[in-house]
Write a protein that binds this DNA or RNA. Structure first.
Lengths: 94, 94
DNA sequence: CCAGTTGGATGACC
DNA sequence: GGTCATCCAACTGG
């Protein structure tokens, strides 16, 4: 195990105490809750960053290749799918 | 603002560093993220506690008064509302 | 009893 | 506000 190192966070008194309340409502320690809080947050935000990065990369790719599929094409396909479940998905083109 | 006091949270190295990465991806400081993290967490968990408390109180109230409205009654009302937007909502009874 | 981990408070520095 | 280094109490496993 990698010896957990110490960080400090500055919170006002009431936040601290709300943590304590939740903590014993949950039968866990405040410290534990903070860790959880931060871990969850990291996970979430990391996912968000990923999504953003993918979107940006995607646009970049389009700018460099000109490859794309237009919104109209997608709409057409969406309609077609309603009648024919195996309608061919539009492919990329310049 | 009321004197923010210092608390300590112990995280492993990688969590720390992931925070830093997200932090500068977001152009904010790690500390700030931790605060956010904890505040969000508190808010969420508090809401959850509330919901649970209300549900329990509600059941308690039913047990003591016998007052309730049955699922069927709600369903009937829901249907009625579709035709008559001002259908009377079912009232509690024993 | 000692070592390691968790849980937590402080004081100091930028 | 943002960050680090200590130091302390309590518990746990050897």
């Amino acid at each position: 195990m990698q010896t957990a190192t110490n960080l400090t966070v500055k919170l006002n008194v009431d936040e601290r105490h709300r943590l304590k309340v939740l903590a014993d409502a949950k039968k866990r320690t405040p410290h534990f809750l903070m860790k959880e809080a931060i871990q969850r947050y990291i996970a979430d935000e990391e996912a968000e960053q990923m999504a953003v990065k993918i979107a940006i990369a995607s646009v970049e790719h389009y700018k460099q290749t000109g490859l794309h599929v237009s919104l109209d094409e997608v709409r057409t396909w969406a309609k077609a799918v309603k009648v024919d479940r195996s309608a061919k998905i539009p492919s990329c083109h310049v």
